[in-house]
């Protein structure tokens, strides 16, 4: 296990300077996510233009992995359709959890930086919390989701 693989420069940068951080008001949908194991809490907001995500923001507090992952997510999903977001989620999930998953930077972009997380199983939930929360927002669910 190499720490540099987990805390890559992109992750460290997005943790120190999270993008699209803050409340979206008004928002078409939002959802709260909570990881009771480590106390990560975040809210993901989206504005939709038909089927497409026009804007995504988040706020909350958490570890470097969860904050950086949420920051990267808001950048990655902007302009994508719901269906494209689902596909992207599946790919990110595979990269986080499967050792043999192919990491394709041309499809994942900066999200590929999260691939080091799979060497640290205890941290997978940190990286995936924002994605579950986004899904909940897209489903218009308002009940808090949890990674447990």
């Amino acid at each position: 296990m190499d720490l540099k693989d987990l805390y890559r420069d992109v992750i460290v940068d997005h943790n120190r300077h999270p993008r699209n951080f803050g409340k979206l008001d008004p928002a078409d949908a939002h959802a709260d996510g909570f990881n009771p194991l480590c106390g990560d809490r975040l809210t993901v907001y989206v504005n939709l233009d038909g089927e497409n995500i026009e804007e995504a923001k988040f706020e909350g507090s958490g570890c470097a992995i969860s904050v950086a992952s949420a920051s990267l997510l808001t950048e990655a999903v902007k302009g994508k359709s719901r269906a494209e977001v689902r596909e992207l989620f599946d790919e990110v999930h595979a990269v986080l959890t499967q050792h043999d998953a192919n990491v394709d930077p041309s499809r994942l972009g900066k999200l590929a930086a999260l691939s080091g997380v799979r060497e640290f199983p205890a941290r997978v939930k940190c990286a995936s919390l924002c994605w579950h929360t986004l899904n909940a927002a897209l489903d218009r669910a308002t009940a808090p989701v949890t990674t447990e």
Binding site: L3, R16, P36, L37, C38, C63, A64, A122
Partner: peptide, 23 residues
């Protein structure tokens, strides 16, 4: 300051140091 306890726990673990992190 600036480092979440969960990250502290992971970094310490790679050094062989076991601490509890969380609530």
């Amino acid at each position: 300051a600036g480092i979440h306890p969960h990250d502290i726990g992971t970094i310490l673990d790679t050094e062989g140091v076991a601490v509890r992190t969380g609530h």
